[in-house]
């Protein structure tokens, strides 16, 4: 049945007769309206990239970041409402801090992801709140090696080799499925992500965008989550543009 006008889609605490919670689906819509975010887990680390749409040319370069560090060894990429996502980032930082205080060691990526997901989930339980209008990709390195998780408004928390969300989710997924993750290095993943982001960007609907790249690697960044340095980023972008031109020829 359709959701609109049914009256079952007004509150997050209401099921429809066929068992759906439409408000959560609508929150996912907010994610799907946002710039694409993808991440690749390689043998030595994780790379995450975001297509950050620029609404005005008077904005300062690099503002409204959609990739944030949460702890030394964990970072997140964002699709959806940035203001909502910042709350998740704050929460994630507090969780990381609290874990370190209690157990004296860095929080495992899986534990952090599940705690953030638990927060998202309780916001789908009560009519007095709305779900988070954002999805986040959590990437990091812990004792188990590189980790990549995606947390959605529903509160689901799933590990991936390659994940995508936002506008170009499906197109990006098709590209990601071609990758042999276990043979890739983070350096190659940076280029690959740049290529995918450039290819899924819709120049007609969204004018301007900035590619934001973050990475963490056991060898390249010594296990710290960092933004990708300028020279690597511009290499990746020119590689992406060339690949795009070749494909168009």
């Amino acid at each position: 049945m359709t959701s609109v006008g049914s009256g079952y889609d007004l509150s997050v605490s209401t099921y429809s007769p066929d068992g759906k919670i439409f408000q959560v689906d609508y929150a996912n819509k907010a994610v799907e309206n946002s710039g694409t975010c993808i991440a690749i887990k390689t043998k030595d680390g994780v790379v995450v990239g975001v297509e950050k749409l620029i609404p005005s040319k008077m904005l300062c370069h690099g503002s409204n970041r959609r990739i944030h560090a949460v702890d030394l060894h964990i970072g997140v990429g964002i699709s959806g409402f940035l203001a909502d996502a910042r709350q998740l980032v704050l929460r994630a930082r507090a969780e990381a801090k609290s874990y370190k205080q209690i157990y004296g060691q860095p929080i495992p990526v899986k534990v952090l992801s599940q705690r953030v997901a638990a927060l998202c989930h309780v916001y789908t339980l009560y009519g007095s709140v709305r779900a988070f209008g954002c999805s986040i990709i959590i990437s990091g390195i812990d004792q188990e090696g590189p980790q990549l998780y995606q947390v959605e408004p529903s509160g689901s928390c799933i590990g991936y080799f390659g994940a995508s969300m936002g506008k170009g989710k499906q197109a990006a997924k098709n590209e990601l499925e071609k990758i042999k993750f276990n043979e890739m290095t983070t350096h190659e993943a940076i280029k690959e992500i740049a290529k995918i982001i450039y290819s899924v960007h819709d120049e007609v609907k969204d004018k301007d965008f900035q590619l934001e790249l973050g990475w963490i690697s056991t060898t390249e960044t010594k296990g710290q989550f960092n933004m990708v340095p300028k020279d690597l980023q511009s290499d990746a972008e020119s590689y992406a543009k060339n690949a795009l031109e070749e494909a168009n020829m």
Binding site: Y26, A30, N33, R130, A131
Partner: peptide, 17 residues
């Protein structure tokens, strides 16, 4: 529309009116 009266309600297009 029916989606614009509450702060906790998403519209079907993912907006918060």
């Amino acid at each position: 529309n029916q989606y614009d009266s509450e702060i906790v309600t998403f519209s079907p297009t993912g907006r918060i009116h």
